[in-house]
């Protein structure tokens, strides 16, 4: 049985625009101009128990909106949602006992009281017995290393400290399904790794299903076998991460750092014979060439470029996932 069953899910937001001037304001009183925005556009999604799914997409793609509908916070405009065998809206109180949610951008702990007081309250809220709490939460607290933070009020914690506590709080009732909306936002590498390790551990131990959104693809690489790629409210890819890598440009990337400014037409001109795409790099005078082909072509391209322009540095890389995703965001998935 699927833990998440979504069919034709859609969410539209109406946004009102106000007319200008006094006359406009007066007209707004009677008829208002509004635009409808489809934040989530007819998506269908099935997730099995124990899966870890990475839900990615550009800013504003509709990831958070989807999660809010799956958790019962927002009502869908159209479509069917069944999560843990329930309709999140119809059976709200029963349903929310079976899920855990973390919104990286929004704290769910009580701001002014010590973390452990929040935990104690949540333990009561979810009717967790003392034994369950002892065995399960002790473990969580140990793995996330939040023991020393427990007696501090949430407002005094750093972002990374707070996020670990949020994660622990979402797991108090040991839910079989976990929604994480940007759980690693703004965290340093060590905390990120700690959180990844922890998620892997609970997934292995309890077969917890996890749906997570992130802008850090390293999270996805470390955790998720499956990615769902969302673009303007539509799912444009749903499958294995390594398939995505394989289907996309299988090739190499050469980073050239030139000694003098160079422009794109000039580079394209000299490399006409090769299957190469040029892109401005992050640094000044840095250009990145993505080549689809044999090693031989790569070395030929390099020698051609060096022949025409003085360079200060060259680097040869495999195309990273980050690069692939960036290309998809920029150009869509038309490439086969």
């Amino acid at each position: 049985m699927n833990v998440i069953e979504v069919e034709g899910l859609r969410k539209e937001f109406k946004s009102y625009s106000s007319r200008s001037g006094l006359k406009g304001a007066f007209r707004d009183l009677f008829t208002r101009n509004y635009k409808t925005l489809r934040a989530v556009d007819d998506i269908s999604l099935h997730v099995k128990q124990g899966e870890m799914v990475g839900y990615i997409g550009e800013n504003g793609a509709g990831k958070s909106t989807t999660i809010k509908m799956l958790t019962g916070i927002l009502t869908p405009t159209a479509g069917n949602v069944t999560v843990n065998g329930m309709n999140p809206h119809k059976e709200r109180e029963k349903f929310v006992r079976t899920i855990g949610v973390v919104f990286g951008q929004r704290s769910q702990l009580w701001w002014d009281i010590a973390v452990q007081e929040s935990f104690r309250l949540l333990k009561k809220v979810y009717k967790v017995s003392d034994e369950e709490y002892e065995t399960h939460m002790k473990e969580v607290i140990r793995t996330l290393e939040i023991e020393p933070l427990l007696d501090k009020p949430v407002r005094k914690l750093s972002l990374g400290q707070r996020m670990r506590c949020e994660l622990a709080a979402a797991l108090i009732h040991n839910p079989p399904l976990l929604f994480l909306d940007e759980p690693t936002i703004g965290l340093d590498v060590l905390v990120k790794m700690k959180i990844r390790g922890f998620l892997k551990e609970i997934n292995r131990k309890y077969k917890t299903t996890i749906l997570l959104t992130t802008h850090d693809l390293a999270d996805i690489e470390a955790l998720c076998d499956r990615v769902v790629l969302l673009d303007e409210g539509k799912i444009i890819y749903d499958g294995r991460l390594d398939e995505l890598q394989k289907n996309w440009v299988e090739g190499k990337q050469v980073h050239f750092e030139f000694q003098h400014p160079v422009d794109k037409p000039a580079l394209e001109e000299i490399s006409r014979e090769y299957p190469v795409i040029w892109r401005q790099g992050e640094r000044v005078n840095q250009w990145v060439a993505t080549i689809d082909g044999e090693d031989d072509t790569v070395s030929k391209l390099m020698s051609v470029v060096m022949l025409h322009h003085a360079i200060s540095d060259v680097k040869l890389n495999k195309v990273s996932t980050e690069e692939i995703i960036r290309n998809i965001y920029e150009e869509g998935i038309k490439h086969g």
């Binding site: 809010k68 958790t71 019962g72 916070i73 927002l74 709200r92 109180e93 029963k94 929310v96 006992r97 899920i99 949610v101 919104f103 929004r106 769910q108 809220v125 979810y126």
Partner: peptide
């Protein structure tokens, strides 16, 4: 500030 909506994920 939207906190009420998030309260909807609590069983109370």
């Amino acid at each position: 500030d939207g906190k009420v909506a998030v309260e909807m994920i609590r069983p109370y």
